[in-house]
């Protein structure tokens, strides 16, 4: 147990050298490495926080965009629905107008057809009635309708002579037109009656298929219609009166 002061000095120097060596090769690299790793971890944590914030911001942005898209979609759907309703209303109005026009046209067409049918019915009825009358006159009285009309006209001229002379003026020809050729007896009767009243007037007989049954006498500017046209025209009025009176038009089977 003795102290060698040279050894003590050498050991102090050795210890100081060892402090420097360990500082150089142990403490500083290790502590710097730990500090670097801590700094790296801190940076990574900060980056993670930033990335998380960025992700949250992106998520919020995405949610906002989705929300905006949904709102835009809803607006577009409303606009489309409104436009569709407008177009539907317009199409309905157009269809309604066309339908009304078609209905009006159909009603007009029906009225026209009805009118035509009524006219046709009236003419057919008149024609049938005329045929029946002719047939009845021929079968029952051995007379023709035109012959009887001519005889009756010959008798009926006398009361209208004054008016006929005024209307005829100074004309010296008379024309009697009929739809069918008059029997000779009827012509003679008419001729004698007219020459009795108008001795200077020559009489001619003509036929006109478009003329209604009966006779038409023209002298100068005067015209005397002696036809069944007025009766046939009144046939429609009679039928309307019968229908209005509630006559049953049902055909009763025999």
């Amino acid at each position: 147990m003795s102290i060698d002061w040279i050894t003590v000095a050498a050991q102090i120097a050795n210890f100081l050298v060892l402090v420097w060596l360990l500082k150089r090769f142990l403490y500083r690299p290790i502590l710097d490495g730990i500090d670097a790793r801590e700094a790296k971890i801190t940076n990574r944590m900060q980056e993670a926080v930033l990335a998380k914030e960025k992700a949250q911001a992106a998520e919020q942005l995405h949610l906002d965009q989705v929300r905006a898209l949904n709102a835009k979609q809803a607006d577009m759907a409303d606009a489309v629905q409104q436009e569709a309703e407008t177009q539907r209303d317009a199409l309905l109005a157009d269809a309604r107008n066309r339908l009304e026009q078609e209905q009006a046209a159909w009603v007009a067409h029906q009225d026209e057809e009805s009118r035509k049918y009524a006219v046709k019915l009236q003419r057919a009825g008149g024609g049938a009635l005329l045929s029946l009358t002719r047939k009845a006159l021929t079968d029952l009285a051995d007379e023709t309708l035109e012959g009887r009309i001519a005889q009756h006209l010959a008798k009926g001229i006398a009361p209208m002579v004054a008016d006929l002379r005024i209307a005829a003026g100074k004309s010296n020809s008379a024309v009697i037109t009929s739809r069918d050729v008059l029997p000779p007896s009827a012509k003679d009767d008419l001729m004698s009656s007219l020459q009795t009243v108008f001795p200077d007037v020559s009489v001619q007989f003509e036929t006109d298929v478009d003329q209604p049954p009966g006779l038409v006498l023209r002298i100068g500017g005067a015209q005397l219609d002696w036809t069944v046209d007025g009766y046939i025209d009144s046939l429609g009025d009679l039928m309307d009166e019968q229908l209005a009176a509630g006559v049953d038009l049902k055909v009763v089977p025999k």
């Binding site: 050894t7 050991q11 060596l21 090769f25 142990l26 690299p29 290790i30």
Partner: peptide, 20 residues
């Protein structure tokens, strides 16, 4: 004493140097 001190110093230094 000094010699074995150097051995300890060398061990510590070389080990630190190799590891770091």
């Amino acid at each position: 004493t000094i010699f074995y001190t150097w051995i300890v110093m060398a061990l510590l230094t070389v080990a630190s140097l190799l590891i770091t």
